[in-house]
Amino acid sequence: MNIFRLAGDMTHLASVLVLLLKIHTIKSCAGVSLKTQELYAIVFATRYLDILTSFVSIYNTLMKLIFLGSSFSIVWYMKYHKTVRRTYDRDQDTFRHWFLMLPCLLLALLIHEKFTFFEVLWTFSLYLEAVAILPQLVLLQRTRNIDNLTGQYIFLLGGYRGFYILNWIYRYFTEPHYVHWITWIAGLVQTLLYADFFYYYFLSWKNNKKLQLPA
């Protein structure tokens, strides 16, 4: 464990807690994409399949449980909670996220570290996480609004992967044989996607106008 990875995990934890608290407190999920939340629940479910079979540390298992619990709770709130579900922007959140999953699955079947059931699903979760934010970014562009909690959620979510890139650089230089090209490239693609969002977010903040994401 190194400071970059701890910072990354804490930022990631903060992002899901910010979102969960927002939805739980104001009983509204306006501006939040259910598609992205469903993709994240799938990301965690396929990445943490080994939670019962492999033990790394108390911290590792605890965080996995928190991420699984929070992501499924958010999906549950948005789909089934009597008050929250009414605030969901169904006709704006129309990104075909299932079409994102198929290419990720095919890619995981082609490019992976080991061809085993767990490893292919783990790689699938890595590719899926890189693109999981897309429905949310599309929704933001359509609804033209970005309330600061959703903005913070995306900011933290992007920040966590940025910290992880620093963690991979650190581990590359401090641990012999620590090379995971697949993880590094997927993480880089993901962060670049957020960087793009941040650029337009910063512009809208600086010029004090509505967030305008590119078409």
């Binding site: 080994d50 492999s54 790394v56 590792n60 965080m63 996995k64 641990e175 993880t183």
Partner: peptide
């Protein structure tokens, strides 16, 4: 950390 090839990150 854990042995090589073992996913020790979240």
């Amino acid at each position: 950390d854990s042995p090589k090839g073992f996913h020790d990150e979240l």
